[in-house]
Design a protein around this nucleic acid. Structure first.
Lengths: 188, 188
DNA sequence: CATGAAGTAGATCGATCGGTCTACCCAGCG
DNA sequence: CGCTGGGTAGACCGATCGATCTACTTCATG
């Protein structure tokens, strides 16, 4: 059974925000891409565009968190990191560097869209939680794991940003190189 | 002598882009903040808003590059890094997390504003060049220095992004912690 | 069949967008 | 003096923004 308008709107919103950011994502394009009626937005998201984007941000974040958990059960953190970055690089290249991270775009929103920014913050916190648990399972202390997990998330986000700007996977390659070294060298 | 309209426009554009991103920076606010006439934009930047923002991006990047060079002459890379992040944290806190990195905002622009994205890419490349030279001066090989410098830039950008999203300096603190460790441990 | 909720299609709203235009002020200079 | 060009002030343009509204269709349920 095909996805209803609500799901189509969320998917289109994620893609559009990845391409053009929150402010740049217009309703007209959104409706065209999702093949939805204008009214469907306000039927499912009474708060309008910002509520849709907030929901989309949390949905995209939750999807990623599940992926971290799923693959994290089958490999160690440094392998998961390398694999994740490899996927990111592939998606950047295959989209000709048009698609960035939807959470990063939501995080960069202006102050008057507090809900969207808070959604991004919650997603980041969830990712950190997930990776932190992996690191603890691998024998690290709670504090060590928390700090390292937070750094991994922000470093990967930064590498994505720079990769998109320079239209090159080099920042991502550098990130996997140095973060792997950081993960392997258990000095602390 | 007071700065002319051109300089006022550039300063206001940098600030506005830091707050609301490229798409979110409206000309009306820009003119009000810079106390300029609407016509002055097109007098100095015939290409309009995007040319102004492109110029502003390069100006902000050049200012930062000069700061890196200047302070880089007086301290080693890890000290410069810690000092830079400390400044970033201070500016985030003092602006109540409203002001992000203008280059990051320019980097996140949609594909049809290629000039702005290219300006951001050029700025990043300039920063990497500067830090790379520092690292070479400290005895690292060219390849090592290049990769490490690129990673430093993207990691700091990512930490800024996450710090702004979570309204906390924690990501910045984590970045200085782990990047310092990476810089001090000369294993390679 | 009747009812009502969900979805579609599209006109329309006021506000704002970036951009263009005219008119005026004023300092520098012949 | 008059001329010129940067600067200012503000009206104005078409286009687009997010949002609201009506009218029609679809369809499951009573």
């Amino acid at each position: 059974m095909p996805p209803g308008p609500r799901q189509r709107l969320i998917s289109a919103a994620i893609e559009l925000v990845r391409e053009r950011g929150v402010e740049g994502a217009g309703l007209t394009d959104l409706l065209e891409r999702s093949s939805s009626a204008r009214r469907s937005i306000y039927q499912h998201f009474p708060g309008g565009k910002l509520e849709l984007i907030e929901t989309s941000t949390r949905a995209a974040g939750e999807w990623m968190r599940r992926a971290i958990r799923q693959f994290g059960a089958a490999m160690d953190t440094s392998t998961l990191l390398a694999e994740t970055i490899r996927q990111i690089a592939a998606s950047l290249v295959s989209s000709d560097y048009r698609l960035g991270c939807p959470i990063a775009a939501a995080a960069a929103v202006s102050a008057d869209a507090a809900g969207v920014r808070e959604a991004a913050a919650a997603v980041f916190a969830g990712w950190v939680e997930e990776i932190e648990a992996m690191l603890v399972r691998e024998g690290r202390t709670q504090d060590e794991a928390h700090s390292l997990a937070g750094f991994l998330v922000s470093a990967v986000e930064g590498a994505m940003l720079c990769a998109r700007a320079t239209r090159s996977t080099e920042p991502l390659d550098q990130a996997v190189e140095h973060l792997t070294r950081l993960l392997r060298g258990r000095s602390s």
